[in-house]
Design a protein around this nucleic acid. Structure first.
Length: 216
DNA sequence: ATGACGATTTACT
DNA sequence: GTAAATCGTCATA
């Protein structure tokens, strides 16, 4: 038995995940969580911006091809991790990148995880999780969590959060995919506007929605 | 074996 | 606005 929430095309899931709760449980039992405020969809083999473009399937991106609801965590720029939710269907490379969150639990731990020796000013709460690599740093998400089942895992899961109306959501082109030719400008990034925690200045566009169907 | 590069973040001019 | 940091991964040979 398994939920079908993640058996959706990436663009639909990306919209749906806005306002949902991302929860990380550490080995010592600490709970870190946040409401998802920004996502990006990576559609499939036709998507030039995707790690799965052209049907590329390697050890690194294997989780993109896995069962919907599998965590795809990759390492990039020699120092950052990014977290995605694999979706649509097994043996098809699609995923939603989680780019931003509003901290709700474990705030102090996340601030500690995000602190460095050479940081200018103390981090504001809004800067704890407003970026794909920042979320992973704050919540201690790395390659050891790659491939886990988000519907089963005690370590990392996605729960029902707040229902966000369309008028509060903005849809824009994706960030950092300038190499993707005709795919670089497609509106596949979703932002929960009032939360103002987007990882990057937006433009303008719009899109449609449905309800959420995840566990409490 | 090698080289080019990246779904980013930070600090600095 | 620009540049540095920093290394796993992949394509090429």
């Amino acid at each position: 038995m398994h939920s079908e929430v993640f058996d959706l095309p990436a663009d639909q899931l990306a919209r749906l995940l806005i306002g949902c709760q991302l929860r990380r449980t550490l080995d010592d039992g600490s709970i870190l969580s946040g409401l998802i405020t920004e996502t990006e969809a990576y559609i499939g083999p036709e998507d030039r911006a995707s790690h799965g473009f052209g049907g590329r399937r390697t050890q690194r991106n294997e989780s993109m091809w896995a069962q919907p609801g599998t965590a795809y965590v990759y390492f990039t720029y020699g120092m950052h991790h990014c977290f995605n939710v694999s979706c649509y269907k097994e043996n098809h490379p699609a995923a939603v990148l989680i780019r931003g969150g509003k901290p709700t639990l474990g705030n102090g731990i996340m601030r500690a995880n995000r602190s460095t020796k050479l940081r200018k000013n103390p981090l504001r709460e809004k800067d704890l999780c407003n970026g794909p690599a920042k979320i992973c740093q704050a919540m201690l998400i790395d390659r050891t969590l790659d491939g886990i089942d988000l519907l089963q895992s005690a370590q990392l899961t996605i729960l029902k959060g707040i229902k966000v109306p369309d008028q509060e959501i903005q849809c824009t082109p994706r960030i950092g995919v300038g190499y993707a030719q005709e795919w670089k400008d497609k509106p596949l990034r979703w932002i929960w506007k009032p939360q103002n925690s987007a990882s990057n200045p937006p433009a303008d566009a719009k899109r449609s929605s449905e309800g959420c169907d995840l566990p409490e």
